[in-house]
Design a protein around this nucleic acid. Sequence first.
RNA 1: GCUCGGAUGGUGGAACUGGUAGACACGCAGGACUUAAAAUCCUGUGCCCUCAACAGGCGUGCGGGUUCGAUUCCCGCUCCGAGUACCA
Length: 932
Amino acid sequence: MDYQFKAIEEKWQNFWAQNQTFKAETNSSRPKYYVLDMFPYPSGAGLHVGHPLGYIASDIFSRYKRLKGFNVLHPMGYDSFGLPAEQYAIQTGQHPAITTEANIATYRRQLDQIGFSFDWSREVRTSDAGYYKWTQWIFMKLFNSWYNLETDRAEDIVTLIEKFQISGNAEVKAVCDEDIVSFLPSDWSAFNEEEKQALLLKYRLTYLKESTVNWCAGLGTVLANDEVKDGFSERGGFPVEQKKMMQWSMRISAYAERLLQGLDTIDWPEPVKEMQRNWIGKSVGASVKFKIETEDIKLATQDYIEVFTTRVDTIFGVSFIVLAPEHELVSILTTEAQKQDIENYIAQTKKKSELDRMADTKTVSGAFTGSYVINPVNNEKVPIWIADYVLAGYGTGAVMGVPSGDQRDWLFATHFNLPIIQILDGQKNIENEADATKEGRYINSGFIDNLGYKEAVSYLNHWLEREGVGKAKVNYRMRDAIFGRQRYWGEPIPVYFKNGLPYLIQEEELPLVLPEIDKYLPTESGEPPLARAEDWSPCHGETYELSTMPGWAGSSWYWYRYMDSQNDEAFASKDAISYWKDVDLYIGGSEHATGHLLYSRFWNKFLKDLGFVNEEEPFKKLINQGMIQGRSNFVYRVVDEEGRGTNKLVSYGLRKDYKTTALHVDVNIVEHEVLDIEKFKAFRPEFADAEFILENGKYICGVEVEKMSKSKFNVVNPDVLIEGYGADTLRMYEMFLGPLEQSKPWNTNGIEGVFKFLRKFWRLFHNEEWVFGVNDGEPTKTELKALHKIIKKVQDDIERFSFNTSVSSFMIAVNELTDLKCKNRSVLTDLVVVLSPYAPHICEELWELLGHTDLSNTPYPTFNPAYLEENEFAYPVSINGKMKMNLNLSLSLDEAAVKEIVLSNEQVRGYLEGKEAKKIIFVKGKIVNIVI
RNA sequence: GCUCGGAUGGUGGAACUGGUAGACACGCAGGACUUAAAAUCCUGUGCCCUCAACAGGCGUGCGGGUUCGAUUCCCGCUCCGAGUACCA
């Protein structure tokens, strides 16, 4: 029979499902290998052709590893909490669980028909109570933990309480809130329960804090920094503003250094590591306290301004101090005379949106408070200004202005006529711009005069510390992550409030199930949707936390759940965790670089600190598959003088002769840029009797690369391709498109080539009448050579994730064997195994026809280099590096022999034109190059 | 602005450690089969000169360098894409 892909694919998909072929057993004697895909959010649109790209690659890899004798864990699930289902619920009133369930069914159908080797028995869904029970459980562990800087790990909160009881908090080195007041052990025991709880909250790894958040009114919720892009929400594109709110936060900053260091131990793409490094934003410098001059100002909390600087060596060049307009000391520091100025400036800043403030980096602005500080190193009086180029959220919200060494400070000083003090003899041209050099010796710099950069920094750090006015300090840009959303469709936070303080519910009460509500909107009083739930209260009239967890909660640990997804005693058994350990290969999009991948590393490190898991890093190797962009097609509608559309459409090549507007046309009715006019008329009935101006009898469409989306009519659905060509063709074609990690526009042109290849492969096993038949007997040398070439090539390619090149090589192998009229059983049997990770259905069918079973666990053929050995090689002979001719020579010849043969060769002599060869380069098996 | 990618025929791409640039596929052109079309098969296909062949010249974004030899290494630049953005 001809290649009947539809019947074959259905048959083997059913077979795999019934036999649970890909069910992974924990504790096998075979070595483990864990291949993970970033699990999808099941959107209503279903999969388009870009989504499976990474899944296909990981599936090929998994199937290959299985053939290579590994016990492979390759699971799939759904990140099923999320905004779209809830937005849909708001519009239609349909419960998001129902929408989600329906969407998952679509995803599952689409995934199944591509023939993935997922172990579906381990499927997880983050919105299942059986799953989010453990998300909530991890939250409780975080609540009950603090970060001990002495042991450099998270510990149970009881060890902190012990320290408080023994020695108060003076000796405690912890990552905690900044507004900690020190207390003695006696104070601690005197505190009442609520005072104790309020204090502990400042140390917990998840904590409530009044903080400035990204409030998105359009979505009715706060967003994490990584969910905001250029001042707009990543989902939906609504404007985002800064707002103060009481919010749950995760103390990820405690792990900043470990998150940074860990990057050096994992095999990830450099850009992703770089993004994480930037996000963490480590800077090494010093904090310095500048004492405030307190003549006519009453100071409430402190008498100094603390700044952070990475150039403490420039401290003698300070000619002003700048505070962020939001800095808490601004109102106190402002003198009566300057009050109007400062208030105007703050009002003006507030009017500017975050976006304007970021966009406008050229204009210098600021205002003088009227107050001064004393520079600790030289007792100079320095004016205090405010300016919006200083950010409240970074460092201390205050900087020291050194105009000679920092361009922004230079601009500020020039604009406001403040002194510019040279501090290094190496600084040049500081009348015109700042010079940030570290070269040379210090001048005008008191006790560090004549020192070099390194000595100066170390001297100053010691000096500041000794004087009690500063110290060396490392600062991180990364802020703690906001962990609450004022939305319905997420994990309830397992917390209730008593007298305004948060308490955990009992572990036995988990999961805290999402209650039913009547509408998915905030209440009239502006409370989150959960406030609508009736009778939803733990006891005695207390109320549960009403916000839910953010989208990244469920995905920050899901790879552990796959290890033991049915366990209801633990998120995964000790046994399963110590067997599967970590993810060996993780494939997904780079858009998760600073969100999911950072949070996951954070939770993983936390779980390790508490002894629940074993590895410091969860994902050993990461690969980013490139984005598949859409490739839009256009028709060109002729417009009249007034710009109105006419009923004429002109082909791409002729459009210059007319005034036209481009209209998107469904890419599914265009083939090789030629429009199917009949289908077009059905697609756009208003053009049913339009006039088509053709070129060479065809209507040619224009092309542009854009995002793949419904509105651009450029979505290609894998279902359509599977219908026409089958899953094996789709799998191979997606790989054939180009390197996995490269972004590229989808283009269905060319899929025929892969389909033809599979037919040709099928034909190798069949005669002219499509009757299956192979020959027994010894394979020939050339057959073995073709076979072993592909055995080696595919194994090399897969190990370095170069899937596109293997597809070409398969084509070459099949072309060669076809030319050889190879029907040899042993050669073809091995070939089936080698191809099976890429095209599993057709290979299973042929495997069965060859009389075998259990292809998925057959050993990968062993490569034998002996079959590739050549005794002759067609040496390229070049003259001065330019290739002229090939010369067939035995590979056993040594350099001297080859030179002699080459020089005496008639044709070579012709090229030499009688000239003397100055030098002959000979690389065995590679090249002969004659220099004249 | 800074950081990281990338640029090879009409198209997707290959060339893995400096050694025959353009594999493989699409498209296109021509041919076979057919009443015809589809399917299939065969041949050609980087550009220029040439009727064609032979031979030759040019050719991996641009300019230079290292080397017997550079798509590959180094320096400078252009363009495209991604990330980030007053981070003190």
